[in-house]
């Protein structure tokens, strides 16, 4: 078995959005849409501030509400790494998954189906990193298998403080942010 995850180092991230642009070209994401984005979180009062920049996307949850709610089975979990995908030909564009996703990670593609991050499974199958990971000039993104304790992502999570988004939603997200 394998469980793919992304570990993103918020110390290194400069929020440049290269991950967003690379995803758009790699996956031909249509104009007006993006599958990933940068979140800016500021705490404190000037000049004593803390800023966290996060590259966000579908969390490829281990307990994905978007799959549970899909009436046609278009939203599904791929056997490789537990990646959450959408079969375009089965999707009827009903938006149930858009409503179910607590991360607002999905949108309706102009061609009528629900679309989102695929962890670039077409690249991963060929032994490459997802486009966002491989482009990052800050080298802040890591991709790998959490079921392999020797993988880089496993080692980073074992050795560094980290958090995931909305753990209270019970989705078991697979994107982790090093802090």
């Amino acid at each position: 078995m394998s469980r793919f995850a992304m570990v993103i180092d918020t110390h290194r991230c400069v929020g440049c959005q290269d991950c967003v642009v690379a995803c758009k070209t790699e996956n031909n994401v249509p104009e007006g849409y993006t599958r990933d984005w940068i979140a800016e979180e500021v705490h404190g009062e000037f000049p004593t501030l803390h800023l966290e920049l996060r590259s966000e996307r579908c969390n490829h949850c281990s307990n994905p509400p978007c799959v549970a709610c899909c009436p046609t089975g278009a939203s599904h979990v791929h056997p490789l790494g537990g990646v959450v995908l959408v079969s375009h030909d089965l999707c009827i564009g009903c938006k149930a998954c858009l409503a179910a996703c607590p991360y607002d990670a999905r949108f309706i593609h102009p061609d009528g189906y629900a679309d989102k991050c695929t962890f670039c499974i077409h690249r991963v199958e060929r032994g490459l990193d997802p486009a966002c990971v491989s482009v990052c000039p800050a080298h802040c993104m890591h991709f790998g298998d959490l079921d392999d304790p020797r993988s880089e992502v496993s080692r980073l999570l074992a050795s560094r403080n980290h958090h995931a988004l909305l753990p209270e939603a019970g989705t078991n997200p697979n994107i982790f942010y090093l802090t």
Binding site: D9, H11, R12, V14, G15, C16, P137, A138, H139, C140
Partner: peptide, 18 residues
């Protein structure tokens, strides 16, 4: 740096932070 995106410098800056 980081907003001013001079590639090599930003890469080295992130390494310095890291």
């Amino acid at each position: 740096l980081g907003e001013n995106m001079h590639n090599t410098q930003v890469q080295e800056f992130a390494n310095a932070v890291g």
